[in-house]
Design a protein around this nucleic acid. Structure first.
Lengths: 111, 111
DNA sequence: TTGTTAATTAACGGTTGTGCTAAATAAATG
DNA sequence: CATTTATTTAGCACAACCGTTAATTAACAA
């Protein structure tokens, strides 16, 4: 189990956050396909991927000469769980969550 | 509007995370009352509070010679909103969320 | 106004993070 | 087998982060 602070540290960098968002929205991608998230060198991207991987935010699988990365659901869920554990503080009532849930049930569209 | 990466950066430090958790769980506290979250000097705590404040994670109000700090609901909500915006990725179905919500409705206890 | 308490700011040093270029590794291709 | 492509590792520089002690600011109390 990685600490939540490590997860936050991994997501605290704009480039890494952009990488994770890309993986969340577009699905698994190779290192090369993630190169355009920021105007930095390939080695810099590679190191960001390493940081994310070591924090457990993304997973890696090797496919030939490519390394395919994907977001780790558990990491995002851990963050969500933390906010939920304090939900009564930041959310006055249940209306908003209930409404969102209801919309999903009927709507069933994606983000 | 603060960027989410700034919020994550603020919460990426163990001491700052502990401060925020204390404020979330125990409510508003003065700087002095937060001193015991970590075995570090008062100036160190003070600077962490400044980082959290500048990131919009906590609010400060002055009361005589004390500075009273409190968690900013909007910051936590922003994190929650982000996870929710990607919920379909990390949450296979709605069962878990629906269950948690249902428990809250009847139970209504806190964390 | 003198002293005490609460908290911050200033100045310094050590560690960590992030970028670069160059080099290395490993698979795919001719 | 030589070359190209994909990606990482190595080594270096610079900026940011975090802790400390000393000094400062502000409110409170005698």
């Amino acid at each position: 189990m990685t600490r939540l602070t490590d997860t936050f540290a991994a997501l605290a960098d704009e480039t890494r956050f952009a990488i994770v968002e890309r993986l969340l929205e577009a699905g698994a991608r190779s290192a090369g396909e993630l190169a355009d998230v920021a105007p930095i060198s390939a080695p810099a991207i590679s190191r960001h991927l390493k940081v994310l991987r070591e924090a457990g935010v993304i997973d890696q699988r090797v496919q030939g000469s490519r390394r395919i990365y994907s977001a780790n659901p558990a990491a995002i869920r851990a963050i969500s769980d933390w906010t939920v554990s304090h939900r009564t503080f930041w959310e006055g009532g249940l209306e908003r969550l209930a409404k969102a849930l209801k919309e999903e049930e009927t709507d069933n569209g994606n983000a």
